[in-house]
Design a protein around this nucleic acid. Structure first.
Lengths: 204, 204, 204, 204
DNA sequence: GATGAATGAGATTTCATTCAT
DNA sequence: AATGAATGAAATCTCATTCAT
């Protein structure tokens, strides 16, 4: 087994980093990014505020890494869906399900994203948020349009409005969803999809 | 009995106050409450930071007044709907429509409410937010339950999940809605209701 | 008389600014820029550290303004000399005399300049220091070269070395010169010039 | 009696120490003592900041050792000159030449000394700097006075002013001198002496 | 009503130093 | 000898708030 000394250190350092980022994400989600002080994060991590700077450049760089990590994983999931070339309805179902899975895995990051996205995207450093949002919009809009063309989705709806409706509806769930609750992400996705696709009114 | 001279002054002062609150609300909505400095508000109002304290006690009291004003009007509208004792579907339609009207009238306040609600509600001073939310939940839940009982809404719905679904669906619109755009609030309400009630899938 | 209100405020504000910069310059010169805390400056100015930020953006911007103000005045003096097209020896005498006058007027700024110039010039923000130094070198070198060509200065000296010799010799004086002492700047200049031009050895 | 194995280790350790001090001196000279972080020194030495503390007590103790080493060597040279009881002009020539040799050997230390001397001398720990400066002044002043008395230096000189002139003239060279350049220290000394003794003007 | 200057508390960040491994 | 992680003190800077004018 090679380099018995170096390997575990790299891993341990990365693990610590991840640990601290998870802590930070939790606090950011709970109190809001601006309202969170680095001292609070450090308290939660059981260290002093200054010690965080051994691991990270700044409070902002923590935020950046949290969001990047989340978006990277999100897009890994989305891309897998998009590349499998399903029909529009199945694509929508798969995207919604994938979204709830991401909320399950990255609840804090999603909550932060939801709250801070608008302000952050204006900053150079967080341009990747705007990029992601554009790709996001393209993926959803084209799915909806394909669905209308294929007579799978109702043609009488404003597609952009529908896009916003579905998008926001799914993601705000991060603000109340608690992982490990009674519903699995797949179960919630199923119920959401049922409402979104067929409505809540009784069919006559 | 007040002199004829006093009246217009009081009104003028109240109007100025309202003007400043509108400005503040706009900035809070745009940048987030915490990220907004009193100086920024003052800049937008064409005065210096210190001058705001002639009109208001504190930054927080501005926030409070903005939210109270909004919720007062919201509940005036909601109460009118609830007191007219419509059927469950009609109640839901009326509540949704009323909500979009409020978004139209108080876009900034709604956006602030959406973003800051969670953190604020924990504070004594903003207990009225939690109260409102409880009343809100009660009104919606009972409407949905009445609807299920009356066989107007699907019986297989998880009512709490549906409540969150409808609530989020409506209010998130504040994050992208711009008053004076191409859709009137009533038009948007109609489309949202169509999606919520009948779904986006084509009926077979 | 126009605007009885605005005028004096502008002047008063500018005067205060100057006052604070003079204080800061004194402390920077005394303790070194890096070793000086804004608290120390504020103490000397009789205010709290945070209050300085009402007048200035940052500690660095104070330093910048101190150095710019000094160099602007220095160049006003130098340019007047250079434009009067004196002979090389008279030019050198005038430049040295002008330099001692500047040391007299801006002792602190000169001392700061001497100590921090090298490090600062590397920064974008302080590029004007490097610019100034280039003009400086050109002015002195050409004067010396003219002098050699006109058989006024010794031809057997390395001109660049001589330039450094004269330049540094004059400016380091700022580190010990105290305005209001027994020698006027003109008197010191006269004695320095006597040494620089004719040497300290007895002529045989 | 030490074992044969101990000796080379002691020497190796001392060599490492010297190496690190040279590195530190270089960085101090380049960036200024206060602006230099322990991390920067460690970077230049290819180790981590904490590791320096195996070799040295503190950043300040590194500075002290650098300056002490330099001054010890300087005084060894100066004392040799002073003890050989030369005439005043020859003494001055020898001291200047010795000074340029020290600049050549200890450029970084000289530059640090020049920049930090004033602030450091006030500290108890660096009292030796003030001591050295007093001896220095005495040596130079007496040489100049002997020279004036012996009709070797001009009688119209302000001796203190001349002392500062010569002192500054010599030592500032450390700010631009680069060892291994085109001029040897002896050559530079010769030219400086020529200027100081006979002036830069052509003799008529 | 509004300005200009200041306060004071607290936030982020830096950095010399320590110490277990 | 050196590393990696942390400490803790202090530095710069921000900002809501106050108050004399």
């Amino acid at each position: 087994m090679p380099t018995k000394k170096k390997e575990p250190q790299v891993t341990a350092a990365a693990a610590r980093r991840r640990e601290l980022l998870d802590t930070a994400a939790e606090v950011f989600a709970e109190q809001g990014y601006n309202a969170t002080t680095v001292r609070t994060i450090a308290d939660h991590a059981g260290m002093l505020a200054g010690s965080l700077y051994y691991h990270f450049d700044s409070k902002e760089s923590m935020l950046e890494e949290i969001l990047r990590t989340f978006l990277d994983e999100l897009w890994a999931g989305y891309d897998a869906v998009l590349e499998s070339e399903l029909g529009p309805r199945e694509t929508l179902e798969a995207l919604v399900t994938e979204s709830f899975r991401e909320i399950d895995r990255h609840r804090a990051a999603v909550a932060i994203y939801q709250k801070e996205n608008r302000q952050l995207a204006a900053q150079e450093r967080f341009a990747f948020l705007a990029d992601s949002q554009r790709r996001f919009e393209k993926a959803w809009l084209s799915t909806l349009e394909r669905g209308v063309a294929a007579d799978v989705f109702r043609p009488d709806l404003d597609v952009r409005l529908t896009y916003r409706f579905v998008r926001d509806t799914v993601w705000v769930a991060a603000s109340w969803y608690r992982p490990g609750g009674q519903h699995s992400p797949e179960e919630i996705a199923r119920q959401y999809l049922s409402m979104v696709l067929d409505g809540i009114a009784v069919r006559r």
